[in-house]
């Protein structure tokens, strides 16, 4: 049974823009935004999660910098969502009570991330390790997601 814990508060931004703006962002942020679909990049305490071909979720400090040359959009969503950490045995099984993804670690490998659904809530799921998942969910869906995970814990005691 995997443990459920609240991830510590962090700054969060949604970065949206085309490839050129992205390249500029790589420089400004001092880390490359992942271009590969459904993959996250981690540098120190900071992470960038690919959410769509022009959309990234940036987690951590140091992303609040203005780019200059090219149009893009960066929006502070630090308070929009919360992070939930799921760590331990059967973490993937617990998620699969409500998530339709194939979470076999050979398929949804460590470092992959995606928006998906968990029961009736939309979540962002990021595999940090074979048995460790980070979930981002809009704050008002937090109780629901935690409630469903608590049920899942009972099933995989």
């Amino acid at each position: 049974m995997a443990d459920i814990s609240e991830a510590p508060h962090t700054e969060r931004y949604i970065f949206r823009g085309g490839e050129k703006a992205c390249a500029e962002a790589d420089m400004a942020f001092g880390m490359n935004l992942p271009r590969e679909a459904c993959h996250a990049k981690v540098t120190g305490e900071r992470a960038a999660l690919w959410l769509g071909p022009d959309e990234w979720l940036l987690l951590g400090n140091g992303f609040n910098v203005q780019l200059t040359a090219l149009p893009y959009s960066q929006v502070d969503v630090s308070h929009r969502q919360i992070g939930i950490q799921l760590k331990g045995n059967h973490a993937a099984d617990m998620l699969n009570i409500g998530c339709p993804l194939d979470l076999d670690d050979a398929i949804f490998t460590t470092g992959m991330c995606t928006r998906t659904v968990f029961g009736k809530a939309e979540i962002i799921l990021w595999r940090q390790d074979v048995q460790t998942f980070h979930i981002e969910v809009w704050r008002s869906f937090g109780d629901y997601v935690r409630g469903l995970l608590a049920i899942a814990q009972k099933e995989y005691m």
Partner: peptide, 17 residues
């Protein structure tokens, strides 16, 4: 439930679409 191949993300359950 359909299995749909998103041109960006690959095969996913219809629930996501």
């Amino acid at each position: 439930m359909l299995l749909i191949k998103c041109p960006y993300c690959g095969e996913r359950s219809e629930l996501e679409f």
